[in-house]
C-alpha cells in the first residue's frame, strides 16, 4: 500500500516549520521519523496534503541535565534515548521504555517528539513520561510555551498541541536512583502493549486503559496515605475506560492494570530497582 499524494517541504528551522503549519493549516502534517504517520498514510487513514519534514532541523536531538530536570530534544530517536548515558543515570525509566518501543528498525527512526505528539494510548514513552511528570515544550507562532505532562494527552490522537505548534523538547524531573518499573504486557515482544504500567516515585501511569495514557490516581492517593502495595494496586483501574479488542475485553484489561501495577510497585520498591 502507498500513501496518497502530498506536497513535501523540508524546513531548516523550527520557525520555518511553524510558518509552514500556519500557511497550510490542518492540511499539513509534521513528519520526523514517520513511524506513526506513514503507516496511517499507507492505509489511507491519514491523507495530509502537505508533509512538513522536520527531521533535518539541527539541534533537536539531545539529552542534558538542566537543574533538577532532564531536557530531551524532540528529535531524539528512540535508540539514542535507549543508549544515552545521561538518561540512564538520571531518568532510567525512559531509556528502558524507549527500548520497549516496536523493534530495532522502528527505534532507529521513531522520535520522542513524534510519539509524544501522536498520542496513541498504547505508547510506551508517553506512559513513562506521564509517570515522571514534567512538561512538554512546544513552539508556535507566538514563541514557546510549556504544557504540563498531565495536561498534554487529551484523547485518542488528541493533545493540547495547537495546529500550528511543534513539540521541541520534553522536560522531566531527575529521578536518579529512585525505584521505578515499566511493566508491559504483550502477546508478542514487539506488539503494542495490551496494557502497560509505569511506576516511579509513587506516581503510576497506565497505557491503553483509556483514550489516552492516564495516571492511576486512586492508586497514587492510596500510596500517599500509606496503603499497602496490594491495596493500592487493587485500585489501579478506577476511573479508567478500557476498550475492547481481540486481545482483551474491558474486564481483562482492568485485571491486567491491577496485576501489572502491583508488579510494577513491587519492583519499584525493591532494593536497587533493577531494570524491570
Amino acid at each position: 500500500m502507498i500513501p496518497g499524494a502530498f506536497e513535501y517541504v523540508r524546513p531548516g528551522t523550527v520557525e520555518e516549520a511553524v510558518a509552514a503549519l500556519v500557511e497550510h493549516g490542518d492540511d499539513a502534517k509534521l513528519i520526523a521519523g514517520g513511524h506513526s504517520l506513514l503507516p496511517l498514510m499507507k492505509l489511507r487513514l491519514a491523507m495530509p496534503a502537505v508533509l512538513v519534514d522536520i527531521s533535518r532541523i539541527p539541534d533537536l536531538s539531545y539529552v542534558r541535565v538542566e537543574g533538577d530536570e532532564v531536557a530531551i530534544g524532540a528529535g531524539t530517536r528512540h535508540f539514542e534515548l535507549e543508549k544515552d548515558d545521561v538518561a540512564r543515570a538520571e531518568v532510567p525509566i525512559l531509556p528502558y521504555a524507549a527500548s520497549q518501543v516496536g523493534d530495532p528498525q522502528v527505534r532507529h527512526r521513531g522520535t520522542l517528539g513524534g510519539t509524544v505528539a501522536h498520542s496513541d494510548p498504547a505508547s510506551d514513552l508517553p506512559t513513562a513520561l506521564l509517570a515522571l511528570g514534567g512538561s512538554v515544550v512546544v513552539q508556535g507562532p507566538g514563541g514557546r510555551r510549556s504544557i504540563p505532562m498531565t495536561e498534554f494527552w487529551l484523547g485518542f490522537y488528541e493533545t493540547a498541541l495547537a495546529e500550528d505548534e511543534v513539540v521541541v523538547e520534553v522536560r522531566v524531573p531527575r529521578t536518579g536512583s529512585a525505584g521505578w518499573a515499566y511493566e508491559k504486557f504483550t502477546r508478542r515482544a514487539n506488539d503494542w502493549p495490551i496494557v502497560a504500567v509505569a511506576a516511579v516515585e509513587g506516581r503510576v501511569a497506565l497505557a491503553n486503559m483509556a483514550g489516552a495514557v492516564v495516571r492511576a490516581t486512586a492508586t497514587e492517593e492510596a500510596l500517599a496515605r500509606g496503603a499497602s502495595i496490594a491495596e493500592a494496586a487493587g485500585l489501579a483501574d478506577e476511573g479508567t475506560s478500557p476498550s475492547s479488542d481481540m486481545h482483551a475485553d474491558p474486564e481483562y484489561r482492568r485485571h491486567l492494570a491491577r496485576l501489572l501495577t502491583r508488579r510494577a510497585l513491587e519492583k519499584a520498591s525493591g532494593a536497587g530497582a533493577a531494570a524491570a
Partner: peptide, 27 residues
C-alpha cells in the same frame, strides 16, 4: 497465537500483519 477473526458482521479483524499475530522469533 494465530487466529483469523471476524466480527459478527463478517468484517475481518486481522487484515494486516499489525493485527494478525504472526509468530516472531521472540515467542
Amino acid at each position: 497465537l494465530e487466529e483469523v477473526l471476524y466480527d459478527a458482521d463478517g468484517n475481518p479483524q486481522t487484515s494486516t500483519l499489525a493485527d494478525y499475530p504472526f509468530v516472531s522469533a521472540t515467542e
